[in-house]
Design a protein around this nucleic acid. Structure first.
Lengths: 194, 194
DNA sequence: GTCTATAGAATGATAGAC
DNA sequence: GTCTATCATTCTATAGAC
């Protein structure tokens, strides 16, 4: 392994491009959505950037996947319900620090509604994976009356996505606080420890 | 009033264009988002259509406002909490019959995040108005523990918007059912009549 | 009031030099 | 592997005839 050659180099450079793109979009926002914008940001010409990606759409999906990969580390393997809750809130809190990524994500999510869009499969997989993770904890949430677990996880997911739209219109919207309020109202267990 | 002349005619035609555009987008979906697409749909040339609207963005905002106007009639003045609930669910149910409008709305909602976008003011007003309406009923919803009314209405709004994203990815998502489940879980009053 | 024609700008993608 | 140059397309907006 680690053989000298074009392939390994190409892959490494590709990853480097994605990380750099994420940094820039997170910090400076996501204005144009054009390949040129990203190319400038990562220090390549437009053609130079497209050397690593077949198309604009493939590039953006790759950026989102890279973000998931990095965020996945941040969340970690959730054990208890409280840990899952905290992890979820931590991701939301982190999102308030990367407005450009929130915008990119939301924009792609809408465009992915078209089954022919390259991001369609990505978002279906991603949503399903998130719901599966939430579902593992849903049984421990006791609502009155008891709620269908599938509805419960879709609601949590919808609130997270929908609040982002509100937050993009008004940065004063306190996403973590509101999601925490939802959890409290849904989970009517006895007061938790601490 | 009803004077013969260009002004009244222009306004009437403008309204007709908007209604026609809504019908077509609702029925055939919203593919291109271009002025030309709408122009073809309403039976005008691109230049002919832009005779009535200053710009593309103004046109799309006008379409969304027209939709609100027509939907407003559908909801009616809400009296009781149950009526409000039913009205809210009725709008959501209706949305499942106009996928093109859902897509147009979502797309514009994301783009409106930019304060310079012409739809920015529209969405801020619209969101605020909807929350004010919900707020009038929020006090009657008794959650355990009691929830901040502002959080409550933002959650309901977020679920409605977020579920649309899920529904666009998978038309099998039962939006009215899930929102009803949310209402049931939030409002832990005694079982309602009937 | 509506059309044709076109300006003018932006974009994604590709060809080909180095 | 990266660049410059260019192509082909698309889109908004406007000018001007009728």
């Amino acid at each position: 392994m680690a053989r000298r050659g074009s392939y390994a180099k190409g892959v490494a450079k590709r990853e480097e491009i994605l990380e750099r793109a994420l940094e820039v979009i997170a910090r400076e926002g996501y204005r144009g959505a054009s390949v040129k914008e990203i190319a400038d940001a990562v220090g390549l010409s437009q053609a130079g950037l497209l050397h690593y990606f077949d198309s604009k759409e493939e590039l953006f999906v790759a950026i989102l996947r890279k973000r998931d990969e990095l965020d996945g580390i941040r969340v970690g393997a959730d054990a208890s319900l409280d840990d899952a809750r905290d992890g979820f809130l931590r991701v939301i809190r982190h999102n308030t620090e990367v407005p450009g990524l929130v915008e990119l994500f939301s924009r792609m999510a809408v465009e992915a509604g078209d089954p022919r869009h390259p991001a369609h499969a990505y978002f279906r997989e991603r949503h399903a994976a998130l719901r599966a993770e939430l579902l593992a904890h849903a049984a421990q949430i006791r609502t009155t009356p008891p709620m269908d677990p599938d509805s419960l996880v879709r609601i949590i997911q919808a609130v997270a996505d929908g609040l982002q739209l509100q937050w993009m219109l008004d940065r004063d919207v306190d996403m973590p606080r509101i999601v925490a309020d939802l959890f409290d109202a849904l989970d009517a267990r006895e007061e938790r420890h601490g």
